[in-house]
Nucleic acid binder design. Structure first.
Lengths: 195, 195, 195, 195
DNA sequence: GCCTAACCGAGACGGTACGTCACGTCTTTTA
DNA sequence: TAAAAGACGTGACGTACCGTCTCGGTTAGGC
């Protein structure tokens, strides 16, 4: 049934891990994404350049992989209260921004990715799309139940919630996002959307 | 008493213009910011590399200058209606994103800047800050007049308006932002902020 | 009783031929020895690299093998006239240089080998030694019969004949070696050696 | 009068020397021409790769330059005796082969060049041509004076003298060329050419 | 009407990295 | 055990830019 037969020596998973961990350890040393050349990553991982290029087209693709590996999964939604679900989603964004997790790694990766381009886009093509789908789903429920106005584009409504949080995440280098932020945003915007 | 006298040959303004126009013409040829090396810019402008470095520290700084030169000024606010002022500001953001202006130049510069590194930051350090100040000023008026709730952080309130627009500007590559967008956002958020 | 049994899969002669013919066909396509990598030969022959390395230590050895296979055998010497035998031997050198044979293969192989490294040495370690032995044998006869002076080193005398022909073969890229060349050389040098 | 104006920073002669001396010192360390990469030469000379490529197209050209620099000039010919002039020329070839000079450098360079191809050709395109011209000139005198037969091609006659010496120089890795060699060759061949 | 300092173009310079290629070895499946 | 396939660490290829540094040659004041 399976046609694509594996031929030749298979790619080593150990090598794959070594590369990704090489990027991580450089990140932990404080090396910026811009200063991180393929050559240096290969040197750090004890790996040939070609071995990296065999797997990824370039730096960006590799970084996306690292983010994917490092990223925490979306949180489960309770599904009972629209308001609470939205807060959970926004908290997810905020947490990603803060990188509250033990390792300082994701923190620096995200911190740099936002002022680093294509990467940010490539990564968010996934994350943003997934998030938008989640928000949209919640909003659809609210509209269907008659809680929210039905005359607005769902995707725009989604941005009314996530946009402010993203703006703060991306544009503010300094201030840590305060704790009640998600609730405040959700409650305020909901007030404007309520029927 | 002792005046710092300018000695030696003064810097040529013509050269300065030539460099900036060199960048612009490369931009118009569709050269991406990433592919635009100092070396190439110098070649295009018929200028020595050192002449560029004498004026700017590197590519980024030069690009910021080009944006500054190219950018249109903020629009005057009427100051009568809070709602109308906010719409004007949001339209400004949208227009910048769309780069509706005649020249295709700003369009491509902005289009790429957002998928480009520190430039985006550097530039927005100015634009974002200026914009936030403008929005904050308008909001303060509304709060003072008792139109809006006074219990919220002004800066957060500002992001409630600009965040959605920014999210759409930055994250959506494809869809052109529709015409009534600013009004919809402003009206909806205002509804949630109204006392 | 106990027979030394060959264990495992025996080496395929077909594979051996495929490799050598791979080299030849690349040669016919005009690929230079320098541009002919083991990797490419393996690809052309439809063979794994290891299969080549199992048989030869490297490119050079393989090329020597190809030359050996391709080379024409030394011509039989009549043994009657010293002069005629020398002419036959020189003609052999000239023919090798010209590669007058039907196939264009040896031509290009030889043409390049001379402007190629160790191969030339390795190959000539055989060919040159064999040739020198042949010439020396003929000369010894002449000396013994009293036809030639006996005070010279036989190996030097050999070079008096073959040297000029080699010089022309190796150093002249352009001029085709004329037909009467061997006779002229032999007759002239003999005149100097005659008792 | 001089039209070609020097523009830009001129190439440093010091750098040029450093590169050539880098090659020489590697040679003295016993590094073979084949193992001598541009990268390594640049490292040794403390120079960027581009600086080498700016001056020479590749390894071969660089090596030719090194040979040229290292090579000793042709010896003056007395012009009185044809026999003596020929001996002087042949001695020149022999000396080059032996590299009798103090430094072991030319020795190893020549030793390797002969089993190294294009280089040998490139270099000898000059040396051989120059030498052939010198020999031919001497021979022409002999023919004109009626000392030598006039029915032979001058270039062939030249090879009758230089060919044997070259053959011994190139093909014998081992034996040092004996002292009286040039005289023996010249006297023997002259005997065959005498009218 | 010089003097002199800074500017200008050109391009050399030591580096670093690019992405590709081949080296010779190794590891896998299949025969 | 051989064979085809292809991954692996290594290291060189030749090119492009980096940011700095000379060059010869302008171009302004200040003297």
């Amino acid at each position: 049934m399976s046609l694509k037969v594996v031929r030749g020596r298979p790619r080593s998973e150990a090598v794959e891990r070594a590369i990704i961990e090489g990027v991580m350890s450089l990140l932990e040393e404080g090396v910026s994404l811009g200063d991180m050349s393929i050559e240096r990553i290969a040197r750090t991982a004890g790996v040939g350049k070609a071995t990296i290029y065999r797997r990824w087209k370039g730096k960006e693709e590799l970084f996306v992989e690292v983010m994917r590996v490092t990223d925490e999964p979306d949180q489960e939604l309770a599904g009972e209260s629209v308001r609470d679900d939205l807060v959970v989603i926004l908290e997810g964004i905020r947490r990603r921004g803060l990188a509250k997790r033990s390792s300082a790694l994701l923190q620096s990766l995200l911190a740099q990715a936002k002022s680093y381009p294509q990467l940010w886009e490539l990564y968010h093509a996934e994350v943003v799309a997934r998030r938008r789908a989640r928000v949209t789903e919640v909003l659809r429920r609210a509209v269907d139940k008659g809680e929210f106005r039905g005359d607005l584009d769902l995707s725009l409504m989604a941005d009314l919630f996530t946009g402010p949080m993203l703006a703060r995440t991306i544009l503010s280098h300094d201030a840590p996002l305060p704790d009640g932020l998600s609730e405040t945003i959700v409650d305020t915007v909901i007030a404007g959307l309520r029927v």
